[in-house]
Design a protein around this nucleic acid. Structure first.
Lengths: 123, 123
DNA sequence: TTTATATTTCGTTATTTGGCAAAATATAAA
DNA sequence: TTTATATTTTGCCAAATAACGAAATATAAA
């Protein structure tokens, strides 16, 4: 039951849903997600840890960066099914489409510069 | 997006998940669910209104009783898919199995008596 | 009608959770 | 090594939410 509730609780926040949707396009590092979400890095980090706790995402460390991606087939059936449901549900949502478009712009800047910009406090 | 978040938030509470699982066996009135959940009637009622707000359940009034059931095919695709996911996820959960067993006992008493018992405050 | 009763709504309280900034950690560059 | 920097952890505050009892609503029985 804990496993199920970890998943449903993880999905019960719009920021986390948007992050999962963003990761459909492929792995992203924390600063890219931070830029997209317009939230404090610590907040994004917390959200990511909730998603990882539910096994909805996995991470990979590369130098100073940590890249997150949607969990693959090695995750529990329960989790991959939830991701399938979400992917389908979220398709055609304007908000998600807007994110996708903004993300495209964000990906044009390389991570180094993004993080530097954030360090100066973007808000 | 609101529709999606209504569903994910509705599923993000263990009591509500258990209620949905209980309704897989067919419609139940509030006092039956109250007996099963061991919560105050007002609390159960609130949970039901959240589930209905997400369109996960529907209701039918019969005399003094209101019966709730899982939403049928007329509900949004998004919702029926979520219910399918939950049903599958919840299968084999001990907690849900225990509920199912207790519910069987509860259904042996007719609703009239159940409600009367609750009126005296069972806890 | 009056009374009983099934459910919901309201008001309150305690807990959980999302947000941030600051401090801590970990890695790479100088 | 020292410094810079990407991310996480911690501590705090505000907002959301689950729980209850009491009051309100609605329906049936007397």
């Amino acid at each position: 039951m804990l496993e199920i509730m970890n998943v449903t609780k993880a999905l019960a926040d719009e920021s986390r849903v948007r992050m999962l949707a963003a990761l459909e396009g492929g792995e992203l590092c924390v600063c890219q997600l931070t830029e997209l979400m317009e939230l404090a890095p610590s907040t994004v980090s917390k959200h990511l840890s909730v998603l990882r706790g539910a096994r909805l995402i996995e991470s990979r460390k590369e130098g100073r960066w940590i890249y997150y991606r949607l969990s693959q087939k090695d995750a529990p059936e329960l989790v991959t099914q939830a991701l399938s449901w979400l992917t389908e549900a979220v398709r055609s949502q304007q908000r998600i489409e807007d994110d996708r478009q903004r993300l495209e712009e964000i990906l044009k800047t390389d991570p180094e510069q993004l993080c530097r910009k954030q360090a100066q406090g973007f808000k």
